Computed example of a mutant assay.
Amino acid sequence: MMKDRAKKKITIHDVAREANVSISTVSHVLNGTAKISDATRQRVIEVVQRFNYVPNGYGLRGRDKNSKVVGVMVADIKNEFYARCVQSIMNVALQENYTTMICEMAFNYKKECMGVDALLDKGVDGIIFIGGSMDGNIIRKANKSVPVILCDRKIAGSSLPSVTTDNVSAMRNLISLLKEWGYTKIGLLSETLEMDNLKDRCLGFKAGMEENGLKQYKEFMLFHPDLKLDKATAANCFLREHLERHGTRKLPEVFVTTSDLIAAGAISALRKYGIRIPGDIGITGFDDISLAANLDPPLTTIAQNMEEMGLYCFRNILNLINGTAIGVPHSVIDAQIVIRKSVIDRRMPAWNKMKKSC
């Protein structure tokens, strides 16, 4: 074993595995930052000495000394929503002389575990989780070592600090607007409801439909797990397959989607079948990434304030790091409806003219 390990640099992962303890336990033993049993402490020390393990510059630090580094675990760095949240965090962190270390989870449990372990190994002062998988145990484990903040993510039954959009109110307001504009058959196109933010959007959708006396058509509620990553491409493929199976006549008057990228893929799929937007069907998005205003037609969407979400994430975690937080910080950011041209007020003369030209 020693011969094999000599070929590569020994890491805290190797020490933890050999001592049969967690990464955080090794870190606590090395830093003296928590009560560890004498037997466990001795076992870790023996492995450290046997492997001649030398902690990196961040991983070994005094109890009262901060590394001035914050870790960020992000669900999908290619998605502009997540990227702009991260950019905001980095900008605010720089103002406080902090740097950031970023790991992508890609909705993958193993990648999330490895990312968290790596950040703890580097001795970050706290970790911000933006989106991600359902499993909360990874986050709870990280929180035993450092403060954490959840962004665009909640864990049921947990009081962990969070920064979220008011997804329920945003969806309810959108349904009310669509009803006011004459839409009555409204569909929902979304990835499967694994994350709480998506559950809230669906809850807001259903509440808005009920409040406005609108029937919820099961055949217009479309969900698919592949829409988590590569959303535009996956949505395009999914909706084209749906249209091939069910035809173009059984469609709602408008599709509400849970992402601008899903909406973009849906628009492309509908056009392949000669379906005009908004003449034949309306469509809305969620996020208001830069693509939304540049689609044809420009996309009506719900705008999340990504810059403000990043700002609150860093401010809240900095307060937790410095011990200045009052209670458990939970920040809820309002979202705004941005009206463009992918839906139309069906009460207006322009709609009647468009309808006659079909």
Rank of each mutant, 00 (worst) to 15 (best):
M105L: 06
V163W: 06
D166T: 11
G115W: 01
I130D: 01
L150T: 10
N197L: 12
N173E: 14
F107W: 07
L94F: 08
D125T: 10
D125H: 01
L189D: 00
N167T: 14
A156F: 14
E180P: 09
S176D: 15
Y98F: 12
Q95F: 04
D200R: 06
G157Q: 02
M101F: 03
S190D: 00
D135N: 07
A156I: 15
G182T: 04
T164V: 15
E104P: 07
I128C: 09
G126K: 07
N173Y: 06
C151V: 13
L193V: 08
L188T: 02
C151E: 04
C151W: 00
K199M: 08
S159T: 11
L198N: 05
I155W: 00
A142W: 01
L174Q: 15
D121S: 12
G131N: 02
L94G: 12
K144F: 05
L188S: 01
T184R: 08
S133D: 07
L178F: 06
M195L: 11
L120W: 01
K199D: 06
V168M: 09
G123A: 03
F107D: 12
G187K: 02
R201W: 03
V124P: 10
P147N: 02
K199W: 05
P147Y: 01
M105A: 07
E191Y: 05
I138V: 14
E191W: 03
M114L: 12
C202Y: 10
K110S: 09
F205N: 07
S162N: 09
T192M: 05
S145H: 14
S169P: 13
D121F: 01
G131A: 02
G157W: 04
Y183P: 14
D125G: 03
G136P: 11
I175Q: 05
G123E: 02
S133H: 08
V146E: 09
